[in-house]
């Protein structure tokens, strides 16, 4: 899956750069000019995603965030903007985005509900007080559909929903330095000390179709070069509805910063 994805991304990047080079020679082809006259604009862009999947607000079970690392997460996006009306102040943005979202966190929890499922289907359930490390990483094909407002000829603001299809996802980690109460807080107490740890993997419980809202700005720094910033805010829990082990919902919230080529 990953390899395939990387191939796709490379092909996409190559196509983008070739187009860019081709366009650069002639500046604007008649086709592009024709499109512009119809209020259509095209743009390709690349960027990075910084953020995380977080419960909102943080539940009382999480006592302390010890570490956070955004991991390297990129995005590649192609957009079509259709400006409406004579003044072309309002428009619609339709895009196709290939992106990865991820994070690594370390947290101290108190009475955090856990169910660990082993290779042979063994289940250990209980309440964990102690350290939890989590790694979240997903690859998505996202389709934003946004309303755009041209604040001035160089600055575009946009807001709207997006839908994401997860092609590959990982949510795993381990617990250490703490204790588990078997089944519930009155159950047998098992302490984990030193290098004792138990791993968990909820990757199979990740939701494959997620959606959310995004808002951002697109600034035409030069004739063809744009700089953009977008906040994407997941509205759906990253986990399937019937996944009950993590008792709170987690939402992916990412800031995307990128630059692009406007045709």
């Amino acid at each position: 899956m990953k390899k395939k994805l990387i191939t796709v991304i490379c092909a996409f990047a190559a196509a983008v750069s070739l187009c860019g080079a081709a366009r650069a020679q002639s500046d604007r082809t008649p086709g592009i000019i024709r499109s512009a006259l119809m209020g259509l604009e095209y743009e390709v862009k690349a960027g990075i995603n910084i953020g995380g999947a977080s419960p909102l607000p943080l539940p009382e079970e999480i006592r302390r965030i010890d570490s956070y690392s955004p991991m390297f997460c990129f995005s590649l996006e192609g957009d079509i903007v259709k400006w409406l009306g004579e003044k072309e102040r309002w428009g619609i943005v339709f895009g196709l985005r290939l992106e990865t979202k991820g994070m690594k966190t370390g947290a101290r929890t108190k009475n955090y509900s856990m169910e660990i499922i082993g290779d042979g289907g063994e289940r250990v359930k209980g309440n964990w007080t102690g350290m939890v490390r989590t790694r979240y990483h997903g690859t998505f094909v996202s389709i934003p559909l946004l309303a755009a407002f041209k604040a001035n000829p160089r600055l575009r603001l946009h807001v709207g929903p997006y839908v994401s299809f997860m092609t590959d996802g990982d949510f795993s980690g381990h617990v250490y330095e703490g204790y588990l109460r078997e089944n519930d807080p009155t159950g047998n107490k098992v302490e984990f000390e030193g290098d004792k740890r138990a791993t968990y993997d909820f990757s199979d419980d990740l939701r494959t179709v997620q959606w959310g809202v995004q808002a951002g700005v697109n600034w035409k720094a030069f004739k063809h070069l744009t700089v953009s910033g977008n906040l994407t805010w997941g509205v759906s829990d990253i986990f399937e509805k019937d996944f009950k082990t993590i008792t709170f919902n987690m939402y992916p919230i990412y800031l995307n910063i990128g630059f692009g080529y406007a045709f």
């Binding site: 965030i65 807080p185 919230i253």
Partner: peptide
């Protein structure tokens, strides 16, 4: 951006007050 994002996240999701103990 990172600073802003963090500031934002902290603002909406600061650590809640510790829950009373559940153990007996």
């Amino acid at each position: 951006a990172v600073i802003l994002l963090f500031a934002g996240l902290v603002a909406v999701s600061c650590i809640k007050e510790e829950a009373p103990n559940a153990e007996a």
